[in-house]
């Protein structure tokens, strides 16, 4: 295989693994809904993670 083909092959394989396989199996959509719902979710998280006195 020529150098160019080898490099293209490696690029496509790694992109497929990283974006297709990993996204499908390991990273759920953490923030869902419209902007209002997302800001509500982040606000709840930021408030809940505060250290209590």
């Amino acid at each position: 295989m020529t150098l160019g083909r080898t490099l293209w092959c490696i690029i496509l394989i790694k992109l497929f693994i990283m974006f297709a396989v990993l996204k499908a199996f390991f990273f759920p959509s953490y923030l869902k809904g419209d902007a209002g719902e997302k800001s509500e979710a982040v606000s709840t998280e930021l408030t809940a993670r505060k250290v209590s006195e």
Binding site: L15, M18, F19, K23, F27, Y30, L31, K38, S39, V42, E45, L46
Partner: peptide
């Protein structure tokens, strides 16, 4: 590119904030 995507997957509070 993976680094940029990790902001969304692993650091979503940060990315929103």
């Amino acid at each position: 590119i993976i680094l940029e995507f990790e902001f969304g997957t692993n650091w979503s509070n940060y990315s929103w904030f």
